[in-house]
Computed example of a mutant assay.
Amino acid sequence: MGLFKQNPFGHYLFLKKWLIRIMGSLTHRRYRGFNQLQIIGSEIIKDLPDTKVLFVSNHQTYFADVVAMYHVFNASLKGRNDNIKNIGYLWNPKMNIYYVAAKETMKGGLLPKILAYAGSVSIDRTWRAEGKQVNRQVKMSDITNIGKALNDGWVITFPQGTTTPWKPIRKGTAHIIKKYKPIVIPIVIDGFRRSFDKKGINIKKRGILQSMHIKEPLEFDYENDTVNVIVEKLQYAIEQHPSFLKVLTKKQLEEEELLNEKRRYSAKD
């Protein structure tokens, strides 16, 4: 790799590689140490093409979710199925992994700016800004930048656009799928909200069982599926469709989460 080689967004790959190595080393124990990350389905990762892959996931923290995915993806590409043992997988990380994040979030301090350099495709929220509800048009430059990232590699996105569960899928993700026709891999995560603060930087509780389930690619008729059809498929795939709440009420689910936490801590005592 040339010292001054850049990706399509003007980031120097040599610097990006060292940021991933350093940040990966600093965060590894958050998923294999203080807490334990249970991974299902990571064998899917190593068989994916090098570009035009879109990962869609539910969202629980600003940063811890995507950092965990960097670990899991790189470990899988180095032959580690469903585990992130031996951090050597980050010595030569996959350099063309990107993630979609709110521009406002990525400007909030030095650490977010470092994480942004490691792979953020920053966009303007159309529904919220500076803690207030807004209603503005999607910027075409944001759509173009996500397409640029897809053409260069893999993109992680959280189509609900919020860490609050059960919120609707934003239609922008469906438009991106119709326009760029990527392979779409759903991911369902859990335990991150209990492990970390909302930003995913500070450890809130230790000994939490985290989970990441990587599913088979979704099937779309890119030409004929409507935006609403795609949105519904995404909702089911990342287990955020309202029908999932019909099994247990939201209050019952919250009570079940509290009970699970007590069980985990009791088991350690």
Rank of each mutant, 00 (worst) to 15 (best):
residue 56 V to T: 10
residue 101 A to G: 09
residue 63 F to T: 03
residue 120 S to E: 04
residue 34 F to E: 14
residue 84 I to S: 02
residue 53 V to F: 02
residue 51 T to S: 13
residue 66 V to L: 07
residue 81 N to R: 13
residue 54 L to V: 11
residue 46 K to A: 15
residue 46 K to I: 15
residue 36 Q to T: 15
residue 135 N to R: 12
residue 110 L to S: 04
residue 131 G to A: 06
residue 136 R to C: 07
residue 66 V to Q: 03
residue 51 T to G: 02
residue 81 N to P: 01
residue 124 D to M: 12
residue 106 M to F: 10
residue 29 R to P: 02
residue 92 N to M: 09
residue 52 K to M: 14
residue 122 S to A: 14
residue 66 V to M: 09
residue 126 T to L: 06
residue 52 K to F: 08
residue 41 G to N: 02
residue 97 I to L: 14
residue 96 N to L: 10
residue 90 L to E: 01
residue 113 K to E: 12
residue 104 E to P: 00
residue 95 M to V: 08
residue 70 Y to D: 00
residue 47 D to L: 10
residue 126 T to C: 10
residue 99 Y to T: 07
residue 42 S to V: 08
residue 78 K to S: 11
residue 91 W to D: 00
residue 111 L to W: 11
residue 64 A to V: 09
residue 103 K to Q: 12
residue 138 V to A: 11
residue 115 L to P: 00
residue 140 M to L: 13
residue 65 D to Y: 07
residue 32 R to C: 15
residue 87 I to G: 03
residue 134 V to M: 01
residue 83 N to S: 14
residue 56 V to P: 00
residue 106 M to Y: 04
residue 52 K to T: 11
residue 62 Y to R: 11
residue 81 N to H: 12
residue 73 F to N: 06
residue 99 Y to V: 06
residue 85 K to N: 08
residue 95 M to G: 03
residue 130 E to A: 09
residue 94 K to P: 00
residue 54 L to G: 01
residue 118 A to Y: 02
residue 62 Y to F: 12
residue 38 Q to E: 13
residue 96 N to T: 13
residue 57 S to P: 02
residue 56 V to S: 04
residue 135 N to T: 10
residue 82 D to R: 06
residue 65 D to F: 04
residue 31 Y to I: 13
residue 68 A to L: 05
residue 26 L to F: 11
residue 132 K to S: 01
residue 64 A to F: 06
residue 87 I to H: 02
residue 30 R to G: 15
residue 111 L to G: 05
residue 29 R to Q: 08
residue 54 L to P: 04
residue 134 V to E: 00
residue 77 L to Q: 08
residue 84 I to F: 05
residue 62 Y to D: 13
residue 128 R to G: 00
residue 126 T to N: 05
residue 29 R to M: 13
residue 90 L to R: 01
residue 40 I to D: 06
residue 79 G to W: 11
residue 33 G to W: 14
residue 56 V to C: 10
residue 65 D to R: 07
residue 121 V to F: 03
residue 57 S to L: 12
residue 73 F to R: 09
residue 57 S to R: 08
residue 68 A to S: 13
residue 139 K to G: 04
residue 140 M to E: 13
residue 53 V to N: 01
residue 113 K to Y: 06
residue 33 G to P: 09
residue 62 Y to V: 13
residue 57 S to A: 15
residue 101 A to C: 12
residue 113 K to V: 10
residue 72 V to S: 02
residue 99 Y to H: 14
residue 26 L to I: 11
